[in-house]
């Protein structure tokens, strides 16, 4: 078993008085792909966003319990949330490039981290785009607007942008849900490649996708973690009846 990268202990989250996550305890291993599945509103995206404290942005959210990244509780008062987010990158459901050039998009993270050397920036941009399998498609138009890219290209550029700050963990919130099958296949291939270097947590609606790309799968339902284990086991011989029913498509 690989080392544990992220560990949550009795993590609960409330929107006002409404409980959205109920005491989730989960261990996410290093350099593997962990998938969160479950019907809409089950809390999987909310849970994902607790891992880099993106929920901080929403008013009236209360969180109890712990999230440990490399053994440190990220909700501890001494934790610098900015540093945390450099370490825990995120790719969103809807590709969200800045209205800037491709180059400026990818260089954004390194720049705010104080890298100003042009040579160095160019290097980072090139490596990141290569690692996101999009370099060949954009190398001749780095200074064109990122808005001119196709949806799939935009999403891969957003992955490159996340890679450029050299995170250790990448959270992906349904990264392929708005893409066509070919673009989706490219993203999946990319995830497979990325897990050699990064710990990946992916939320997906697409059960086949979870089965294809992940090593571990967690099934959420109504804010609770129902079952968590090796993907092969979850998809073939789940322990819980609920999991089986969802996976075989009997509800959800």
């Amino acid at each position: 078993m690989k080392e544990i990268k992220i560990k949550t202990k009795n993590l609960s989250l409330y929107y006002g008085a409404k409980m959205a996550l109920n005491s989730i305890s989960l261990d996410i291993p290093e350099k593997e792909v962990t998938a969160f599945i479950g019907p809409s509103g089950c809390g999987k995206s909310t849970f994902l966003r607790t891992l880099n404290r993106m929920n901080d942005l929403i008013p009236n959210v209360k969180i109890t319990g712990e999230v440990l990244v490399d053994g440190l509780n990220i909700y501890d008062k001494q934790i610098d949330v900015v540093n945390l987010r450099k370490k825990v990158g995120m790719v969103f459901q809807k590709s969200n490039p800045f209205t800037k050039s491709i180059y400026e998009n990818v260089a954004y993270g390194p720049k705010i981290n104080g890298i100003n050397n042009r040579k160095k920036l160019e290097e980072i941009v090139e490596t990141s785009l290569k690692n996101a399998f999009i370099w060949e498609e954009v190398k001749d138009r780095l200074h064109d607007s990122a808005m001119g890219l196709s949806g799939g290209q935009q999403q891969r550029m957003c992955i490159a942008r996340a890679l450029a700050v050299e995170p250790e963990i990448i959270l992906m919130d349904e990264p392929a849900s708005a893409l066509d099958p070919i673009s989706t296949a490219k993203i999946e291939e990319l995830i497979f490649e990325l897990k050699k270097k990064y710990t990946i947590v992916i939320v997906t609606h697409n059960m086949q996708q979870a089965a294809r790309v992940s090593d571990l799968t967690a099934f959420f339902y109504l804010g609770e973690l129902i079952e968590f284990g090796k993907t092969r086991k979850i998809f073939t011989t789940p322990d819980k009846k609920h999991t089986e029913e969802y996976i075989t498509g009997r509800f959800g």
Partner: peptide
């Protein structure tokens, strides 16, 4: 769009940045 702000924050930018 909110997505753009989130993208920036997720890259480790502060609110002011």
């Amino acid at each position: 769009p909110r997505e753009m702000r989130e993208a920036s924050l997720a890259l480790g930018a502060t609110k002011w940045e």
